[in-house]
Simulated assay, not measured.
Amino acid sequence: MTESRPGRIPVGDPIALRFDPETKHRLDEMAEGLGPRRFGALIRVACRRLVTQPKAVRNRLEEARRLSAVRRAIPLVMLTLKLEPDTVQKFTALAVEYDTTVSALVRIALHRFLETPGRYKHPMLREAEWTGLSEKVEVMVNPSAKQQIWRLAGRHGTSLGTALLRVALRRLLDKPGDLATDLETIAPLRDLRPEIFPARVNVHFDAPLRDSLDGLAARVGSDRAELMRLAAERVLEAPGMIEQAVNREIFRSEKNRAHLMARHVRRQARRRTQPD
Rank of each mutant, 00 (worst) to 15 (best):
V45N: 02
V77M: 02
N142Y: 00
A31R: 03
A199T: 14
L94G: 02
V88F: 10
N59D: 14
H259V: 11
T92N: 11
M140G: 00
L83N: 04
N142H: 00
R190N: 12
W130D: 13
V45R: 00
E29L: 15
R58T: 15
L133S: 05
G161L: 01
S4Q: 15
G157H: 08
R126P: 02
R107F: 03
W150M: 03
M228R: 08
A95N: 08
K24P: 00
R229V: 12
R263M: 14
H264Q: 13
A199F: 06
R65Y: 10
A231E: 10
V11D: 09
H204G: 15
Q268M: 13
R66I: 09
R200M: 14
D20G: 13
S212G: 06
T185W: 13
P14I: 10
T80C: 06
A199L: 11
L61P: 04
R65M: 08
T52A: 06
A95P: 07
L76N: 02
S159I: 01
R37Q: 14
V57S: 07
P176S: 12
P194L: 04
V70P: 02
E138S: 15
L61W: 06
L179W: 10
E22A: 15
A245I: 02
V96P: 00
N142S: 03
E195N: 11
L83T: 05
P14R: 08
G118L: 06
Y98C: 07
Q147W: 02
A95M: 03
G33E: 07
A145N: 06
R263H: 12
F91L: 15
L164D: 00
L81C: 08
M261T: 10
L165H: 00
A187P: 10
M140Q: 12
H259K: 11
L34C: 04
S68T: 15
T101G: 08
I196C: 06
P188I: 09
K121A: 12
H111W: 09
A217R: 02
R38P: 05
R72V: 12
W130L: 14
I250Y: 04
R200L: 15
P75C: 06
S253L: 05
R18D: 11
S144Y: 01
M30I: 08
P188F: 09
L83I: 14
R44F: 07
R257W: 08
R271Q: 12
I43Y: 00
L227I: 09
G221E: 03
A153C: 09
R5I: 06
Q244C: 00
V235M: 03
V235Q: 03
P188M: 13
Q274D: 09
R248S: 08
L94Y: 01
G154S: 13
G177R: 10
R112C: 07
A218V: 03
E84F: 07
L17W: 06
G157A: 10
T185P: 02
K255H: 09
G177D: 05
R71G: 14
D182N: 08
A262T: 07
A163W: 04
L189I: 14
N142W: 00
D178E: 15
E184C: 04
E127W: 08
R58A: 14
R26G: 04
M140E: 13
